[in-house]
Design a binder for these strands. Sequence first.
DNA 1: CAACTTAGCGAACGAACGTTCGTACTTCAA
DNA 2: TTGAAGTACGAACGTTCGTTCGCTAAGTTG
Lengths: 205, 205
Amino acid sequence: MAGRRSVAAALDTRAAIVRCAADIASVEGMEGVTIGRLAAELEMSKSGVIGHFGTKEQLQLATLEYAVDLFRTRVWDPVSHRPPGLDRLLAICESWTRHEDKPGFPGGCFIAAVTFEWDGRTGPVHDALVVTTERWRGVLRREIETAVAAGELAADTDPGQVVFALEALAVGVNPARQLHGDDLAPAWALRAMHAVLGVPAPSST
Amino acid sequence: MAGRRSVAAALDTRAAIVRCAADIASVEGMEGVTIGRLAAELEMSKSGVIGHFGTKEQLQLATLEYAVDLFRTRVWDPVSHRPPGLDRLLAICESWTRHEDKPGFPGGCFIAAVTFEWDGRTGPVHDALVVTTERWRGVLRREIETAVAAGELAADTDPGQVVFALEALAVGVNPARQLHGDDLAPAWALRAMHAVLGVPAPSST
DNA sequence: CAACTTAGCGAACGAACGTTCGTACTTCAA
DNA sequence: TTGAAGTACGAACGTTCGTTCGCTAAGTTG
């Protein structure tokens, strides 16, 4: 297996395409990613780009998968070793807002951008996005329920309400930074998360 | 002045185009609005559509303006008569979440969608969006500062932090509804807003 | 009634879109 | 040494994009 490049280069090529697509999509959305633009940016031919995926939709799904992996690596993995409960939930909030602070994409968090771009559409990308965010919501929900059961959060805490609020606050960091240059937005989000959880905010972050 | 339709019809036409564009954009974003699609949907020619605006960018700006007017009518006007302070701030939160509940667009709140679509880009539409959201933030900020001065909110309240949180929670209603079908999202957002403000939540909404 | 303005149409433009095809070339397996 | 597999290319496809042009028709103004 080879072409103008070696096997290793071929695998690298696919990864490079996906990474480039995610970079563009974080700024202009997934619909802003065109085969021709990727080809120009990577100095390849259009057919060389799309050949790795077949269709543009498959490329979009691969790009989403890449961003999800990155999210897990940067947000979940650092806290996964902790015991479930309030402690880990707060650690998630910290790594999450830290991730939104420096999301690894030029246009802010990829998932946040794509969430708003695809929430009203239909099709495989929408569905994959639903599955992904649903899974993350499940993680948060279980953490909250554990904390409630342990008496670390108020007994009348509504897990759905708290999950919604945490998600909205984390995602909201993006437009605050991109649109208004709010460098403090991650800290603000973290503080608001504590308020929603009904636990005292840390004195400094 | 006339064509195939009367003067009144011509003014109606422009308004109809903008309304249709806003409907489409709320679902698929402003880039999803194409001249050809508007022409097909309105049973006009492409040149008849774009003739009212000159360029697509002007159409986008007109669409944004329309959505902003609608937002003001539905969120600000119902509470503008009240005296400034916590009471009006809470009234804003209520009309705001009510607006996000039934935003008047098929794809949810137009401004929320466009905010995430354009936050990373440059150009007149981005700039107009910044001006618009900045103005709304100013309204919220003044309300908060008034409430703090009156002792209705804690003296150490950070207006920027609270404004950020209110905005994020309101905007977050959209993907929650579109992606997960959370009909309770508006109520959840309102409850979280109270938590962020540090005031007791209303027993029922 | 004539002159002017303007809404809207239909056709066309160059560019970009996603996709398909045949081909060249390189590496691995037989 | 030959054959299969696979990467990437270049060219072309039909479509759609935003925009421009000349034209018709209706209403306003003189």
